[in-house]
């Protein structure tokens, strides 16, 4: 009886060892860092929110993008996340937080050798300094041919605020001529037209101003950029050479947009122009 059991057991043992050797599982896993994808998704969501001026959503998304980029230890994503956070603070008019984020961007981008991001941060710091009435720390460096359009646009604005009109015009023209049909590029193009319109207004060149404003409105109508639309309408309404009825119509349109956006500075701008129109009458 016991012998039978022993034999049975040994038989089972032999058979199981024969079969076991054959089952070899081959694992070919597809490995992806989930934090990298999450960081990209949060960044995308943050930028979409920024376009629609939903600041709290954008802030949440960009901060989560930074967290996940740090978890992934991905230098390009970390640098870009800091820059995007800086742009958010700029939009929210929080200059100290913006400067801190820009300095982080500049430092990390320099360490990693990300030339475009170093340039972005430098130009944004210059812009901030000009706006705060400080002397700028550095002169504009020569922009390489393949520089991103947002950088060219930024450089143009810096030149404009520094009073270098011709250089600013050249850079705005470069943005206009090289922009693709993508939404972000169209918006950069519209801002470049706005920059040229502001330059034309400073030179009292009404024909150019009207042409540039038409171009801005055409693009903003296509892609949707209400604040820029209101700014363009307000600028056109300021042109004293135009018919008063048309100027008033532009003012009303810009005022309704500023009111929806709760833009106090814009509303004040409209009221100032309205007052000057009343005085003219």
């Amino acid at each position: 009886m016991i012998r039978g059991l022993i034999l049975g057991c040994s038989l089972l043992l032999v058979l199981s060892s024969c079969g076991g050797g054959q089952h070899k599982s081959v694992n070919v896993p597809i490995v992806k860092n989930p934090y990298v994808q999450q960081a990209k998704d949060f960044t995308h969501f943050g930028i979409e929110s920024m376009y629609q001026e939903r600041w709290s959503s954008a802030e949440h998304a960009f901060k989560r993008a930074l967290d996940t980029a740090q978890l992934a230890n991905d230098a390009p994503l970390i640098v870009r996340a800091w820059y995007n956070i800086a742009m958010l603070y700029r939009a929210k008019h929080e200059p100290e937080a913006q400067l801190h984020a820009l300095q982080k961007t500049q430092l990390l981008a320099q360490e990693e050798g990300f030339s475009d991001d170093v340039l972005r941060a430098q130009l944004q710091i210059q812009l901030l300094e000009i706006e705060q009435g400080q002397a700028t720390t550095s002169a504009l460096v020569q922009l390489p041919q393949e520089t991103g359009l947002d950088i060219v646009l930024l450089a143009a604005r810096v030149q404009q605020l520094q009073g270098k009109k011709e250089q600013a015009k050249d850079l705005y023209q470069r943005v206009i001529s090289t922009a693709s049909q993508q939404r972000s590029d169209l918006l950069y193009q519209a801002e470049a037209y706005m920059g040229l319109a502001l330059l034309a207004a400073a030179e009292a060149d009404i024909v150019t101003l009207e042409r540039q404003i038409d171009a801005v409105l055409k693009i903003t109508h296509k892609v949707g950029a209400p604040r820029l639309t209101a700014n363009a309408l307000l600028l056109r309404a300021k042109a004293a050479e135009r018919d008063q009825a048309m100027r008033l119509r532009d003012l009303e349109k810009s005022l309704s947009i500023y009111e929806i956006l709760r833009d106090k500075r814009g509303i004040a701008g409209v009221q100032a122009v309205r007052q000057s129109l009343a005085n003219e009458q």
Partner: peptide, 15 residues
């Protein structure tokens, strides 16, 4: 850093 999305530069061009 091609392929990574960048926030718009926020130029604040109010006249």
């Amino acid at each position: 850093l091609e392929g990574l999305e960048t926030a718009p530069p926020v130029l604040d061009m109010q006249p």
